[in-house]
């Protein structure tokens, strides 16, 4: 459901960057998204198709690099991958660990035709 809001913001940035570069169309949009952002790829593709009509992004391919969640324990310094819910430290059991990856929401790059 939040994919439309995100895609709308992505298209603002991408359309203006592509126009500034004098592009005739955007071929591909590459994103990095952490799994904890709970972004659904199919919904992003649908939002792209729906919102890009008549813009430089119409027909562009979407590539998403999903990042697995990782946290660091401030007590013992261990870094570990984890699922969505339990991010207690696997070494010392400390429940208050810091998320260091998995919440990213970035536009990396775009491929354009000039």
């Amino acid at each position: 459901m939040h994919e439309f809001g995100l895609m709308s913001s992505i298209l603002d940035t991408v359309n203006s960057s592509a126009a500034e570069a004098g592009a005739s169309r955007v071929v591909e949009i590459r994103l990095t998204i952490g799994e904890m952002a709970q972004v659904v790829e199919e919904a992003m593709v649908f939002a792209l198709e729906a919102l890009s009509e008549g813009t430089l992004c119409e027909g562009a391919k979407l590539t998403i690099d999903f990042i697995e969640p990782r946290s660091r324990c401030p007590e013992c310094g261990v870094e570990f991958e984890h699922g969505f819910y339990n991010r207690a430290c696997p070494e010392c059991g400390n429940p208050l660990t810091d998320i260091i990856a998995g919440k990213e929401m970035y536009i990396d790059s775009i491929e354009v035709d000039i």
Partner: peptide
């Protein structure tokens, strides 16, 4: 041609 964007998706909002 590749254009590097390197911006948060919600950059403008943020």
């Amino acid at each position: 041609m590749q254009l590097d964007i390197g911006k948060p998706i919600l950059d403008k909002n943020d």
